[in-house]
């Protein structure tokens, strides 16, 4: 892992970092990854692995909830005519 990897990850997760922050993160991440790498050595018998999670279904019927529209729209950083305003996407 090197500083390029940190930069690449930071751009993937949309976080701007200063140069010294990048260096600090690189050293932190190296240490932590070295520790969690011990998971490689754990032996898991193939037979135990079956995903036990099931989907939880419900009827496809509308179920109105009480949300405060005013509270939501009031918090928009930028708005126009009651709509959220964002910068150009394309």
């Amino acid at each position: 892992m090197d500083i390029k990897d940190v930069e690449n990850l930071a751009s993937l997760v949309r976080i701007e970092l200063k140069e010294d922050e990048k260096r600090e993160l690189l050293s932190d991440m190296k240490g932590i990854l070295e520790y969690v790498r011990q998971i490689e050595k754990v032996n898991v018998k193939h037979s135990v692995f079956n995903i036990t999670n099931n989907n939880v279904w419900r009827e496809d019927t509308p179920d109105p909830r009480e949300f405060s529209k005013e509270l939501i729209t009031k918090q928009f950083p930028d708005a126009q005519d009651g709509f959220l305003k964002v910068k150009k996407i394309l």
């Binding site: 990850l9 930071a10 993937l12 997760v13 976080i15 970092l17 993160l25 991440m29 932590i32 990854l33």
Partner: peptide, 8 residues
Amino acid sequence: RRRILLGA
């Protein structure tokens, strides 16, 4: 920030 990067 650290955990977000480690997660990615």
